[in-house]
C-alpha cells in the first residue's frame, strides 16, 4: 500500500526465475509464437473468440508456471485505463456506432446500444489478453535472450542494411535502464512530495496521479541524459567501436521441439481466423 512504488507494481518487463516449458523455449521461437498469438488477438472481434483467447492467455500463465495471483496483480494498474476507455465508449459512441443495433439503455443524450456494449466488452478483453501475453512473455524471457533473439531474427535482413546488432544493443540498453529510471522516478516523486507537492488523494484518482507525474519529467529526462552520456564514455573506454569484429558471449541453440511452439501458435491463429464464431 504505497503511492510511490512504481516499479513494484509493474510485472511487465520483470523476469520471474522459475523453470517451465516457456522459460526453456528458444527465444526466437517464443518471439515468433508471441507475434502469432498477438495477431490472433488482433483479428478476433467476436465475444466467443475472445473468451477462447482469454482462456488461452490463462493457459499460457499455467504453462509458464507463473503464480496466477501474481499475473493478475500485474493487470491491476491497467484497470483505471480500462474503466476510462469503457466510460468513453459508452458515453460518446451512442447511436452513431452501428445505428441498426437495438438500444438497451437511454438517459438524456447518453445512448447505449447492444453493439456498443459488445464493443466495450471485446476491447476490454483484448486489452487484458495483450497484457497477459506480453507479461507472460517477459516473465518467462530473460532480456539477454530477448535481444539475442531479436538480433538473430534480424540477421537475415542485414543484407538489406538492417543494423541487427545496433538495434539489439539499443533494445538491451533501453531494457536495462527501465528499472533504473523507474527507481529514479520514484525518488524524484518522493523528493517532490517531501517538499509539499500536493497529495494525490485516493489511489483511484487517476487524473491527479498523471498531473503529479508531469513535474518529474524534466528532471527525469535530465537524469537519463546524464547517465546516457556517462554510459557512452564507459562503452568507449571498453573499446566499443560498433558491431564489426565483435565476438559473442552467448550463442542461441534451438532444439526441434522449440519450433513446435511456433507451429502450435500458427494452428491457434488459423483456428481463430477460421472458426465459425457467431458475429
Amino acid at each position: 500500500m504505497n503511492e510511490f512504488e512504481l516499479l513494484r507494481n509493474i510485472t511487465i518487463g520483470q523476469y520471474l526465475p522459475v523453470d517451465s516449458y516457456l522459460h526453456r523455449l528458444d527465444p526466437r521461437a517464443k518471439i515468433l509464437a508471441a507475434i502469432l498469438v498477438i495477431a490472433a488477438v488482433t483479428f478476433t472481434p467476436s465475444l466467443a473468440g475472445n473468451a477462447c483467447l482469454l482462456a488461452g492467455g490463462l493457459a499460457l500463465v499455467w504453462l509458464g508456471r507463473i503464480p496466477l495471483a501474481y499475473a493478475l496483480r500485474g493487470l491491476l494498474p491497467a484497470v483505471p485505463i480500462l474503466v476510462f476507455l469503457a466510460v468513453m465508449q459508452l458515453v460518446f459512441f451512442g447511436r452513431n456506432y452501428d445505428p441498426t443495433s437495438p438500444v438497451v439503455f437511454q438517459w438524456r443524450w447518453i445512448v447505449v446500444t447492444g453493439a456498443v456494449l459488445k464493443l466495450v466488452v471485446v476491447s476490454a478483453a483484448r486489452f487484458l489478453e495483450l497484457l497477459l501475453v506480453t507479461s507472460v512473455f517477459t516473465l518467462s524471457t530473460k532480456t539477454t535472450d530477448l535481444t539475442l533473439g531479436i538480433e538473430s531474427l534480424l540477421r537475415p535482413f542485414q543484407r538489406l542494411r538492417v543494423p541487427a546488432h545496433e538495434l539489439a544493443l539499443v533494445v538491451t540498453i533501453a531494457v536495462r535502464f527501465v528499472p533504473t529510471l523507474a527507481l529514479e522516478a520514484e525518488r524524484l516523486m518522493k523528493a517532490q512530495a517531501s517538499r509539499g507537492a500536493r497529495l494525490g488523494g485516493s489511489r483511484w484518482r487517476f487524473i491527479s496521479r498523471v498531473r503529479r507525474s508531469l513535474p518529474i519529467l524534466v528532471p527525469l529526462v535530465t537524469y537519463a541524459l546524464r547517465r546516457g552520456e556517462e554510459l557512452i564514455v564507459a562503452m568507449e573506454a571498453r573499446a566499443y567501436t560498433g558491431g564489426a569484429g565483435r565476438t559473442a558471449y552467448t550463442v542461441l541453440a534451438s532444439r526441434p521441439g522449440d519450433w513446435l511452439a511456433v507451429g502450435a501458435a500458427a494452428v491457434f491463429l488459423a483456428a481463430m481466423l477460421l472458426a465459425p464464431f457467431p458475429a
Binding site: 529514479e184 518522493k190 523528493a191 517531501s194 517538499r195 513535474p215 524534466v218 528532471p219
Partner: peptide
C-alpha cells in the same frame, strides 16, 4: 534531504 541532491533539485 535525500542522499543524492540530483534527485531533489528539479
Amino acid at each position: 534531504a535525500f542522499q543524492d541532491p540530483e534527485d531533489q533539485v528539479f
